[in-house]
Amino acid sequence: MGEILIQCQDVWKYYGKKEALGGLNFQLSSGRIVGLLGPNGSGKTTLMKVLNGLLHPERGMVLIDGETPGIYTKSVVSYLPDKTYFADWMKVSDMFDLFQDFYEDFDREKAEQMCDVLQIQTNQKMKTLSKGTREKVQLILVMSRRAKLYLLDEPIAGVDPAAREFILATILNNYNPEGTVLISTHLIADVERVLDEVLFIQNGKVVRQEMVDDIREKEGKSVDELFREVFRTVPYGGGAADVR
């Protein structure tokens, strides 16, 4: 087991009166791929934002590599939000320049090679690229860093199965093995095979934290099956629909 990389202790976050994180507690070690799994509105994106300093919790302690979110943690965290964040006037190469200027761990050569493989011209303007290509460029930027922590917020949501394969392969082939990858998603079946550990989150609390091998060995279930069991809701009118 690696060193403790993330520590969250009694973390509370509100949006107005609405509770987004309600006394969240967990620790994560370095050197593993972790799934942050939970239904919509469970607090996954809020937790991601708290971890990279975009949001400040009202209460509680958050430590990444022993530091509270700030300049140091931002220099070791590589964040893929669930939105594309490019300015229209920028070219792909401008984004590479920006990452090279601000992140010491950015590997430009690797980023350019990945663009070559995908036949993305680096002198193209962002606004001329399709939505899918922009998302790929963003993934390339994030995975071309040798970060201690990768925070990937819904990286496979809203894309076709072939693109999901590409995204997961890119993550697996390019992440820093000494670092930790935290992937938030509710598409469990697609990511299950790449995960070492899972965090189940509901109503802003971690309801379960397990190693994937333990789930399979002790409970004889896949993560997907366990997820459905933990987050099962009875539909209106009773019964349950098997939509697998």
């Binding site: 990279n52 300093g53 975009l54 300049i71 220099s75 939000p81 939105k83 594309t84 964040y85 490019f86």
Partner: peptide, 18 residues
């Protein structure tokens, strides 16, 4: 507005700067 308070904000506020 666009550079800090909309989508671009996700990039700018996660750069290692104050």
């Amino acid at each position: 507005w666009n550079g800090l308070l909309k989508e671009e904000g996700y990039l700018m506020f996660t750069l290692p700067v104050e």
